[in-house]
Design a binder for these strands. Structure first.
Length: 427
RNA sequence: GGGGAGAUACCCAAGUGGCCAAAGGGAGCAGACUGUAAAUCUGUUGGCAACUGCCUUCGGAGGUUCGAAUCCUCCUCUCCCCA
């Protein structure tokens, strides 16, 4: 059984470690480990899954995970990785996001373990009512501006002549540093993990704790996860892949991973699943010898979907996939089945009577909003890229009548291989 | 304050009186090949109509001209150099 750090290293989690002794420290100690989550949106994305899974690994090897929702830090805005000042979110939005993020995090961690049950806390609780003057005296005094402006996140903004940085964002690192100190003092938390852009904030916390006479703290950062074609992970056609099933249906999440590039899939298996290294190596061999089976992609998609949406979500995603990639004409379905399968698909609602005398395919594409103009629709159709209920139609003036319905009131358009669109008819 | 350069379609960027709905590249979208991968190749990317037709578009407003993205005037903005 490799050590926790070796294991994380092997799985590609580790970009930087603040102190090489962390490994030996963990051999003989169990501690708590925290990761912070910024409530800047109403849901986390699969990018956030990395620190979440990091916490899970920590818990699996007997350390208490602490997930911190940034109710306080979110009010300030982290300059890390941002090349311009952020606009502040309203307090209501922030509180809503906090609640949503908290709910999501709670799904991944085990709170019932007797020895290392997870904690879910909000840094607003220990920062919100700290008096400004007291904070400056107690905490601010330990920060050297010289060191603060040397941090990468600040330096970039100071060097950029037209962007600059506000005092508010400049102060951010102090708040996050204080979090780390607070969590050490309150829960004995010795480790903070985060994305590589968090390095400066993490080391600020380590320094602060030392100045305040606390124990040695440790930090680990994860690499920025990019796909082989150079995109940041978690974007599908420019849309984020959210963990909230109302924002990103399980099927879409499943598809994102099943379409993973060969060059990425092994790396993702290590990061995003809890499969043993042996299983992953087996899948890698399979990828090498029989890439067309796409066994590795399938397992990856299954594991991640199960982790995020449970068995039920996985089943829904798989049944949708069977219909969508089955190549069979979609015919004689019932409305509810199709609605379930295509729940995430963009849709339009049209009055049923447009089909009574029929409508040309071009026309339908435009009035439903599937295509922006008739020219675009015509191009798509004549180039062979349009499918109606999985059947290719190349004649722009093909008449669509109620005979073309896939179910009682649904018609399915598709452009290319993957872009589906639903037309619902209402009476 | 003085001087110079520039603003073209989603982005970069050619075009400097008609042959310009506007080269080229990127990106996008489709097709072929495939494994729902990658790479490659092909087509396509203002709107309407559809056998060569019409309308809108080259920072904004005017003007010159039979005719302008292209020339002139004013305005707005961006960049550079000198104070």
């Amino acid at each position: 059984m490799p050590s926790l750090i070796k294991n994380l290293e092997e799985r590609g989690f580790i970009y930087q470690i603040s102190d090489p002794d962390l490994d030996t420290f963990l051999e003989t100690n169990n501690t708590s480990c925290y990761a912070g989550f910024d409530p800047s949106a109403g849901s986390l994305t699969i990018g956030h899954l990395i620190p979440i899974i990091g916490l899970m690994h920590m818990q699996n090897s007997g350390n208490r995970p602490i997930a911190v929702v940034g109710g306080a830090t979110g009010m300030i805005g982290d300059p890390s990785g941002k090349d311009q000042e952020r606009s502040l979110l309203s307090i209501e939005t922030l509180r809503q996001n906090e609640a949503a993020v908290k709910k999501q995090l709670s799904k991944f961690l085990d709170f019932d373990s007797k020895t290392c049950g997870a904690l879910l806390v909000n840094n607003y609780d220990w920062t919100g009512n700290y008096k400004y003057l007291d904070f400056l005296r107690d905490i601010g005094k330990h920060f050297s501006v010289n060191a603060m402006i040397a941090k990468e996140s600040v330096k970039i903004r100071l060097e950029s002549r037209d962007q600059g940085i506000s005092y508010t964002e400049f102060s951010y690192q102090i708040l996050q540093a204080y979090d780390f100190h607070h969590l050490w003092k309150t829960y004995g938390c010795r480790i903070q993990i985060g994305g590589s852009d968090q390095w400066g904030n993490i080391t600020a916390g380590i320094d602060l704790n030392r100045r305040l006479g606390g124990e040695q703290l440790y930090g680990i950062t994860f690499p920025l996860i990019m796909t082989a074609d150079g995109k940041k992970i978690g974007k599908s056609e420019g849309n984020a892949i959210w963990l909230d099933e109302n924002l990103t249906k399980p099927y879409v999440l499943y598809q994102y991973f099943i379409q993973a590039d060969d060059r990425d899939v092994v790396r993702f298996l290590k990061l995003y699943t809890f499969l043993s290294m042996k299983d992953i190596n087996d899948l890698e061999k399979c990828l090498e010898h029989e890439p067309e089976k796409r066994e590795a992609q399938k397992v990856l998609a299954q594991e991640v979907t199960k982790l995020v949406h449970g068995e039920r979500g996985l089943r829904a995603a798989e049944s949708a996939t069977r219909v969508l990639f089955g190549d069979e004409p979609i015919k004689n379905f019932d409305d509810d089945t199709l609605k379930a399968i295509f729940a995430e698909t963009p849709s339009a609602w049209l009055p049923r009577n447009i089909l009574t005398s029929g409508i040309t395919l071009v026309e339908l594409c435009v009035v439903s909003g599937f295509c922006k103009s008739k020219g675009e629709a015509r191009r798509l159709i004549t180039s062979g890229g349009l499918y109606c209920n999985n059947v290719r139609i190349t004649e722009p003036d093909f008449m669509i009548t109620k005979d073309q319905l896939a179910s009682k009131s649904i018609l399915i358009l598709r452009s290319g291989k993957k872009r589906y669109f639903l037309i619902h008819l209402k009476d």
